[in-house]
Structures are given as structure tokens and as C-alpha cells.
Design a protein around this nucleic acid. Sequence first.
RNA 1: GGUGAGGUGGCUGAGUGGUCGAAAGCACAUCUUUGCUAAAGAUGCGUAGCCUUAACAGCUACCGAGGGUUCGAAUCCCUCCCUCACCGCCA
Length: 423
Amino acid sequence: MLDIRLIRENTDLVKQRLAHRSGDYASVVDELLSIDTARRSAETERQKLQGDRNRISKDIGIAKKNGQDTSPIEAEVRGINDRIEEIGRDADAADIRQRDLLLSLPNLPHEACPVGHSAEENPEVRVWGDKPSYDFEPKDHTILGQTLGMLDFEAGAKITGSAFVVYRGAGARLERALINFLLDLHTTQHGYLEVNTPHLVKAECLVGTGQLPKFGDQVYHSPEDDLYLIPTAEVPVTNLHREEILKVEQLPIQYAAYTPCFRREAGSAGLGTRGLIRMHQFDKVELVKITAPEVSMAELESLTANAEKVLQLLGLHYRVIELCTGDIGFGSAKTYDIEVWAPGQGTYLEVSSCSNFGDYQARRMNLRYKGEDGKNRFPHTLNGSGTALARLFVALVETYQQADGSILIPEALRSHFGADKIS
RNA sequence: GGUGAGGUGGCUGAGUGGUCGAAAGCACAUCUUUGCUAAAGAUGCGUAGCCUUAACAGCUACCGAGGGUUCGAAUCCCUCCCUCACCGCCA
């Protein structure tokens, strides 16, 4: 959520930054400004009337004590109350409208975020390793997975539907080994605290991180309980501190969490979504940071490095790209994507998206910290996958496949997996 | 799911219709004094909005949430939520 005062006082700057995003928000800003003016004038009027009422009511109490007849002034207060109610309706309506508009406005891209219109303009930041070469035709993970009895897409479709999968045998074990490997790495080497959160959350959590109200059609919802299946651990983990005032000594807060993620993927079904690459449910280890504003950009770099370490240890070739203003997510001010090479696909797969949200999410969830000077401030929130499992699984089995159809387990994963190959 | 108790400021905890945004204590901050591994005293110390501003100040709202009664609600009424205890059920 943007600060209404920033919009009021630096309208041009706000419009100019938003203009770099895809989508047109100038008219929303204009409506916001006129609603804000109306809201404040109604609010001022209401508060003045409430002040009148409070004063006169006190007088009534005193007059009654003195045994005086108070019925004329009581009638006067009733008249004031009618006007308070009337003007209050305007003030409340404007307030609700203003909040709705603010929630529908995306974050301002940071000045460090490269300007561009679409994914084609995302600059490549760095590349690690090389594309592996094979003296045979590398197979797709769906072939490998089914041949080795690791992946059963038919069973997934049978019990739930398309874009759900059943991991079996070595596949299930590999998935579990990867989760443990990731959590162990981030908690013992990178200083994150492991948390294990509910997979169902209240609507306000999704508002807090930005999925609601705008992207409600992308999340699974249980109407009886008004609970939502989490699309990412970012939601429960970042909201752990919603409505709180943190102490400055608590910062930075660093959490790592494994959860399954549930996504409806409305409108994108069947589009280049072979195998594990785009599922309605997938596992992910998420990294979340809450930091002081001054250090958030540096923390984004370290968070991204923490995610990259995963791929380095597993020996997987990857590249890091920076999302341009036309491609960054709704709430993000700056984002790096990490894309791992999948030889069977002949393409890079996004396995991590590391973003600095600035104070955008903190404002939405009213998360603050008390600064050195005793003033309450909004901290910055960051998160990134560390990493998404399904696609990491794809890259791993496709990269380490052998001519005989077996799969080597990279050194770093062997103690977690308990074997050095799958055959 | 049942029964009972309860939800007040960072914490403890008063407060059952009128000058209560809320006593007192603790914690915290600044200052003073005595002096030294501490003590005493003074002052300050919630959140948000509005209006102003160089700053201060002022006003309004908030005592779990939402409604209601009233000229006036932390206080009375209704609904809901949550916490704790015991019982039931259960992985």
C-alpha cells in the first residue's frame, strides 16, 4: 500500500513511477486524490460536530447535578447527532473507497529497478556454470520420472485432477531430501530461523502480502470457513508479525519455511505446462526477511545469494535476471529471478524470485518497528524462494541423467538422500 | 461440541452511566540529588486520524470486534471472536 501522503504531496513522482509498470494507474491516482479531499473535509466536519456534542453533553451532566431543566439542550444535541450521522456516512464511504483504491494500486518500482515494458527487456545480471553437454539425447523429466517410477501424473489426475502429481519411491524420497537439504542449508549456514506455519490463512493475510483483493481468482478458498490455501509461504510467514510493533533490536528477522503452495493458475492452464513445470500444488522452501529500510537493498542481495547457493551446491547451471518495471510483481519494488537450466527442456526454469517490497506490505499489514528515536516506522519486507521444489527436481534429474537412464545424486545431497544414484 | 471464568495502555491491575484516554504499581526515557555495583525525587512515557505548524499545541476516535440503548458508554443490552480451565472427541 502506498502512503496517501506521498500520493498527495508527490503526485507527479507517483504517477511517473507507476507509468513504468504495465497497466494504467494514472486515473486511479486521480480518483484517489479527489476521494482523499472529500474524505478529509467530511472527517473534519464530523470531528467538529463530535467535539460540540462532547462539550454540550458535559454541560448537561453539570446542569442535571444542579437540578436544572436540560430538555432544550438535549434536543439540541439530538440535532447535532443527526448531522453527525449524515456526514459520518459520507466520511465512512469515502474512507472505504480510499482504502479499496489504495489496495488496488501496486508498489512503486524502485529507482534501481530497470525500466522496461516486458520480460524481453529483463537484463541478465550474471550466469553461473555452463550448460552441461551429453553424448546422448537428454530426456525430459517426465520420461525419466515415469521410467524410474518416481512420478505418476495419471495417479495425480485420478485422485485430484490435471496438474497434480504423485511422487513415488525414489521420487518421493528425492523430494523429501531436497526439502531437508534446503532447510538445513538456510538455517545452519545462512542464519534463518525455521518456521512451520499453517497452510490455511485468513483473508487479511492475503491482503497483507498483496494477493487480495486483486488476485482472488488465483487462490483456493474454503467459503464455509473463509480460509484460503496459501499460494506461497510468503503469506503466513510475513504475516507472522502483522499488526505488531517490533523492537529495532529484533531486526533483521529471517525466516525459512517449507510449505506446499497451492495455485489455481486460472487462465493459464495448458500453456506450455508439461510435466512438473506448472502445477496446482508444489513444494517450496521460502526465505522471508523483515529489515530496517536502510539495509533492505543490501539484504535483497544477500537473500538472492542465499538462494543461488542452493544451485551452486547442487552443481546446476543457472542465470540471474533482473525484472524490469514492466515485469515485476504487484507489490515488489525490485526483483531478481533465478533461472536454472533444464537440459531435457532445453530452457531455463524460474526456481526463485527474490523481491524487496519496501514498506508496501508492511503498510498493508500495519507491521511497524520502533526506531532508535522511539518513533514507529514501517520496516521493509523481502522474500524469495530458496527454492521452488518441483522445478528444482526437474533441473536436477534432467542435469544428472546418465546414458543408461539412471540419475546421479550430486555430492551435496547424498547424505540427505541416502544413496548416490537412482536407477 | 459442552460447562465455567475472563479479555482495560509494554506488563500487572483499578475502574458498573457524566470533567475517564482511563487510578496505582512495574518497566522505560530524561533530569536532579545522594553517592556507587545502587537508592531517592521530578518530569515524561499508547495508537491512529483531522486541523494547523518552523515547532509546540489543539480536536476526534480507540478499554477484544461489531451493533444497540442514551444528551452522554470502558461501565447497560445483543451478536460474534479469542484466551484459560475442566469434560467430551480425536491424529
